[in-house]
């Protein structure tokens, strides 16, 4: 009987664990290993054969010394500090509006807000790219007719134009998660609060908002992780503007190191640093939230 159970666990859990080890643990291990090596060229003028030698923390030091890389990290952090709260607030406000008793045509609005999530990130970037480029964009033209000269792709604005693409794609999705949480609250609670004379604002502020908290935490963590991975938006906008270069975000930087400069070791170090920052930030946020809950 016991042996049967053990075999069953192996059969059920084994296939997943095997693939998980191959596609998650092995690449992490391999990235760590590669990040500790460097390629050394032998022979006169370094024209001989290549071989990998142990480099210690040299790649990490190089990544951290590289202004382009640290600059790209600072850039996505700035992006996250502004875009993530804005998007989460928008998502929560939309969810609360749709869940308020005063809302009409709720299914239509909910679908309209959620619709952009069906557009893949690159396609959304191509689409908004057309809406940013002067000459083809009706928005630039409209603003121009109103006497406003706006350049969505200048070095000062392009980061926020990217923020807009991400917000457009994910606000409705995050809204849906918050709505799911609100729906899980028992209706009697709302009824009781209403009988006690709570108005729509109080109901939202003191009952629904605290109820939605776990969903808000979840969406914030996923948004932080998403921000650090920014890649396709700058990649697609790069040909449209000189304000975006091939080291604009950490991911784009690592990609460039690997596939343009063929420096896989440095790229591996940058990937490891990126994963590390993502873990520190998301765990840090979860701890911060957990501590507030304890108080």
């Amino acid at each position: 009987m016991r042996r049967h159970r053990t075999l069953a666990v192996l059969a059920l859990l084994g296939p997943f664990c095997l693939l998980f080890a191959g596609c998650f643990l092995a690449p992490i291990g391999y990235a760590l290993y590669q990040s500790l090596l460097k390629v050394e060229r032998s022979g006169p003028l370094g024209l001989g054969s290549d071989r990998s030698v142990f480099a210690g923390a040299a790649n990490y030091a190089a990544a951290l010394r590289d202004d382009e890389f640290t600059g790209s990290v600072v850039r996505v952090l700035l992006f996250g500090v502004v875009q993530v709260p804005l998007m989460i607030v928008l998502a929560v406000v939309l969810a609360l509006l749709l869940e308020s008793a005063s809302a009409r045509w709720v299914p239509f609005f909910r679908s309209a807000f959620f619709l952009p999530h069906g557009v893949p990130g690159v396609i959304a970037s191509i689409l908004w790219g057309f809406l940013y480029v002067p000459g083809i964009s009706p928005i630039v033209k409209l603003l121009d007719d109103l006497g406003l000269q706006v350049n969505f792709l200048s070095s000062g604005t392009v980061l926020w134009s990217i923020a807009n693409i991400v917000t457009w794609q994910f606000a409705g999705y995050n809204m849906l998660i918050v709505i799911a949480q609100l729906k899980a609250v028992r209706l009697e609670l709302y009824e009781a609060a209403k009988i006690d004379g709570a108005n729509a604002w109080q109901l939202a502020r003191y009952l629904k908002l605290p109820m939605a908290r776990p969903a808000i935490v979840l969406t914030t963590v996923f948004s932080i992780i998403g921000t650090l991975q920014l890649f396709s938006e700058p990649l697609v906008l790069r040909p449209l503007t000189v304000a975006v270069n091939d080291t604009y975000t950490p991911n784009l930087n690592a990609y460039t190191q690997a596939f343009v400069n063929n420096n896989y070791n440095l790229a591996a170090a940058e990937a490891v640093l990126l994963a590390l920052v993502a873990c520190v930030l998301s765990f840090g946020f979860l701890r911060l939230v957990g501590r507030q809950e304890d108080e």
């Binding site: 053990t6 069953a8 998980f20 992490i28 990235a31 991911n251 990937a271 994963a275 873990c279």
Partner: peptide, 30 residues
């Protein structure tokens, strides 16, 4: 099922949720 190491397996998998997929793609390619 209860078996030794169950929580460890689950926690490792959970940590996998928080790892950026793009950080994995590059070493996976190599």
């Amino acid at each position: 099922f209860s078996f030794p190491g169950r929580e460890t397996v689950f926690n490792v998998v959970l940590a996998g949720v928080l790892i950026p997929a793009t950080a994995l793609a590059l070493p996976l390619y190599l």
